[in-house]
Computed example of a mutant assay.
Amino acid sequence: MLPAAARLTSSADFQRVTRKGRRAGRPRLVVHAVTERKQATTEADPRATWSTVSPRVGFVVSKAVGNAVVRHRVARRLRHLAAARLGTLRPGTALVVRALPAAADATSAELGQDLDAALRRLHLAVDDNGGEA
């Protein structure tokens, strides 16, 4: 399950990521991504400082993918795959994963391969040492 803090929920966030972000297309999905930083203040320094926020993910599965049963199945699979990859994403990353009609017939493994390839193409995954994977 995707934690509440890791979900994109507002339409403004979806719009910002899809319009201003970079994108990587794969046969079964398209991933839109932006890296954001949140402004915070500390008592020691009243001036604003920048701190990174945890990665957040949202999903778009339109009627072009299939009927409600198929759309929900695709969305569940994508949520599960994204939750497993949250720890490998750069801090401050906001993703929108848009399923294409070919996702309806895809297995979880195929969707995972497309998601991993898109994340690599966007240079968003980090390894255990904090560097790019």
Rank of each mutant, 00 (worst) to 15 (best):
P3G: 08
P3M: 09
A4E: 13
A5H: 14
A5V: 12
R7W: 04
R7T: 07
L8C: 09
A12E: 13
D13T: 09
D13N: 13
R16Y: 09
R16F: 12
V17L: 06
T18I: 13
R19S: 15
K20D: 13
K20W: 07
R22S: 14
R22C: 08
G25F: 01
G25K: 07
R28D: 02
R28N: 04
V34Q: 11
V34Y: 05
T35Y: 01
E36I: 03
R37E: 15
K38F: 03
T41W: 08
T41V: 12
T41P: 00
E43L: 14
A44N: 12
A44P: 01
D45V: 13
P46L: 04
P46S: 11
V53G: 13
V53T: 15
R56I: 07
R56Q: 15
R56Y: 09
R56M: 05
V57Y: 07
V61D: 04
N67V: 01
V69L: 04
V70L: 07
V70F: 01
H72R: 13
R73Y: 04
A75P: 04
L78W: 06
R79L: 01
R79F: 04
H80F: 02
A83K: 04
R85G: 03
T88N: 03
L89G: 10
R90G: 04
P91S: 10
G92I: 06
A94H: 15
A94G: 13
L95W: 05
L95R: 05
R98K: 11
A99N: 05
P101H: 03
P101S: 03
A102I: 00
A103L: 04
A106F: 05
G112W: 00
G112Q: 02
R120F: 12
L122S: 11
H123K: 14
L124K: 07
A125W: 02
V126W: 06
D128I: 05
G131Y: 11
A133F: 06
